[in-house]
Design a protein around this nucleic acid. Sequence first.
DNA 1: CCTGGGATATTTTTT
DNA 2: ATATCCCAGG
Length: 740
Amino acid sequence: MQTDALLAGLNEEQKQAVQGHDGPILVLAGAGSGKTRVLTHRIAWIIASGKCTADEIMAVTFTNKAAGEMRERLEELGIPDVHSGWIGTFHGLGARVLRREAEHLDLKRSFIIYDADDQKRTMKLLLEEYGHPDSSRISPALMLATISRAKNAFLGPTEFALAATKEFEHIAADIYTSYTAFLRENNAVDFDDLLMLPVLLFQAYPMVLDYYKNKFKYILVDEYQDTNRAQYHFLKMLSSGHRNIFVVGDDDQSIYRWRGADLRNILDFKKDYPDAQVFRLEQNYRSTSVILDAAHSVIVNNRNRHEKKLWTERRGGELVKVLQTGDGNREAAVICEMIMQELKRHRRDLRDFAILYRTNAQSRVLEEALRRAVIPYKIVGGLRFYERKEIKDVLAYLRLVVNPLDSISLRRVINFPSRGIGDVSLGRVQQFALDQHIPLFDALRRADDINGLSARVRSALKSFHGFISKYTELKGKITISELSSALVEETGMLHMYKEEGTEESRSRIDNIRELLNAIYEFAQNRSDATLDTFLEEVALVADVDSLDSSASAVTLMTVHSAKGLEFPVVFIAGLEDGLFPLLRSAETRDDLEEERRLFYVGTTRAKETLYLSWAKRRRTYKDTVRSKRSRFLAELDSDLVEVKEFDVPAYPETYQRPYRTTRKKRQTDDFEQVMPDYENFSQDGSGDTIPVGAEIRHPSFGVGVVQETSGRGENLKIKVYFKDEGLKTIVVKYVKIDIL
DNA sequence: CCTGGGATATTTTTT
DNA sequence: ATATCCCAGG
């Protein structure tokens, strides 16, 4: 392997960074400056120079997708044994350390990773049990957020309790303590634990730390600006021997402060390591200079940043287009229109387009417009496959088989499908378990010793215990695919859904089949395929990770999800003050700066054309608000911008109607005046509204006939007769109704 | 004591 | 649309 070959095609700064000598290195790499390339080539160069082997490298990326791409690139560069390197996300690598060292912690190797939903259920149980006079007024979400913040700042329950001053903080410290104990009793960890526990482990067991310190000769980190304090300690401890820590990041792209990311980590790198070599990559290979300069004209309004300016050889370019529209529906329609134009004029492919937005809720109107315009799209985030009820149910069964201590999963499925075990009975079992100091699952087996249960319930409890135990026994003896299929069959879920016979239950069956298929594929592709590894993958793989860039469709996602990606044409929707920047009750300068960085991330995803759209009125889930254009639009260098106005509002957003280009009336201040009157529309039978007698299709009930309509706008309700379901009342705003 | 129907609240960003 | 809470009926 020639080291020279690894430098071919790199610019001067990139070459220097790749060849930096041992010791701490900070690479300040602007958007599109080839930072992943530098990181990959640095690894290849280290290995090719004989400084170490692949298994002595730790490379941390932000997403599994980035890690996968890195591994692929290294293989292409001819690096041997790439798979033996520890290349992954912080969370993934943290989990790997914890599984190996579980015995040192209060954990078994088979621990389960609790997701946000599990955390919420846990917190509810704890708050009920806590019995503090105020505990009913404490929201689980707030308590979890408090604990998460503590963990991200690397504060354990004890430290947190010591720092507590206010009443709420004392309560929170108590609950933090019980929360931690609960997780351990359930042999579970949460996302934050994956970062925090390895550091605690290293502190408590210097020998363990020594092992990893010696194992990894070089540590490389991508997206360093988004690391939190726990991650900072993790890296600092691991690299404290050789100090070969190579970090790449861009302070302008730090967008996870709310998750504990600490900008100090990157801004103070030079203070931590006074001898650090610093390289700056300021040549951008992605965007036109118009886009770069426009993005720059906004980001310079941030105070808390390293001064730098990206440049490119791609002079000029199309002006940034600001689309000013009447309302959210019109905005979506205009975006579709622009896509159609671009497709025609520039012979673009659908995969060249991305539509970005600040909040997932915005995707709905966009989706509707795309469907109406018959433009294929794929959506990242929002409701994920693994978050569907039926999928979570199956996973809960599997989790219970792997880890019977997981009482959250047990509670989820012990009475689903219905086994006649209700809250009261379960409460008795729970009490028995507490008295006997045994896990909830073990208490099931001893149902005969529990007072106040009917014979029927006793037998149901024992048989559930036997059912799960049987599969725990089978684990490892048959393939995970066989096990999962048999288990799902035995739960009776499929049978239950089949009986129901609705369109919704059919789709649930399909989803379960898809999950079983995913398990099968997983087993085919992974040599280490076990139920444990499958469940870990499910917990840690993000939606962007599975984004297929080869499929021919427009991509929809949040700006956060778009980090690290690029597209020839990018739309950013909803550029209104309050929405982007998103403003909550308390607005601080730091919050606003983070929003600005997020805007910067969004704009710099565009290679050739950037559209920024906003709507004068927007319907939130509650009501319609009048908006002002985003301050970020005002900050854009006006020489680089072209404004296009589409001021007429579209039609009410609750029912589907192609917007018309003819102007009915000039925009006035009175909303009602320009909005068509719904009652009249519903009577005129024009086909694209919902008159009585119309045939519609409902996603779960199928086809039916409208009997009656009531309400208007977002409150529009229709009574529909379905053949299988009978008469149903449907609030149109919640369901995608197709008019036939 | 369990089940199921009906009303109600819920959406910032994510590993 | 989903989750959750409350109430009546079996």
